[in-house]
């Protein structure tokens, strides 16, 4: 089966019923995508499918046939971190870092759609991504700082 991962054509073997998360981490060795719960509660495995944020633990890999998949590895362009990634570092929005890849992708979608989100919109957009370290405060600040 074939799909596009971070702009590159990729393929994998095996049952299409496997979790996209496992195909990404094990077959394609893109380990930026994390598994926190395997039941769609924590959002650590968030990826974008055709620009929409989803939990890759709940997607059958066969379902992305022909789709554009973006993982955290796809956010940095030309080797440079995105403004959002830089804001996370500068403002202390990442502590242990395990939620950060999913958090970045959920925030990325928000910023693509809403140029100047308010704090309430940021909270709603990130509500599917659990963080246990930060209390979300600095994550929300970092996303707001990227409003253009």
């Amino acid at each position: 089966m074939h799909f596009t991962l971070n702009g590159r054509a990729v393929s994998f073997e095996g049952a299409g019923s496997r979790r996209l998360l496992d195909v990404l981490r094990e077959d394609l060795r893109q380990t930026g995508t994390k598994e926190g719960c395997g039941e769609g509660e924590c959002g650590a495995c968030s990826v974008l499918i055709d620009g929409e944020v989803v939990n890759s633990c709940l997607v059958a890999a066969g379902q992305v046939e022909g789709c554009d998949v973006t993982t955290v590895e796809g956010l940095a362009t030309n080797g440079g971190l995105s403004p959002l990634q830089r804001a996370f570092i500068e403002r202390g929005a990442a502590q242990c870092g395990i939620c950060t890849p999913g958090m970045l992708l959920a925030a990325h979608v928000l910023l693509q759609r809403t140029r100047r989100p308010n704090a309430a919109a940021v909270r709603e957009a990130l509500a599917g991504n659990l963080c246990r370290c930060t209390g979300y405060t600095k994550i929300i600040e970092a996303v707001l700082s990227c409003a253009t």
Binding site: C37, E39, R123, E124, Y136, T137
Partner: peptide
Amino acid sequence: DRLATYLIPTALDAPRI
């Protein structure tokens, strides 16, 4: 004993701190 039943605060639940 699952994350669907042990709930921690989300960004929408978190107070302004």
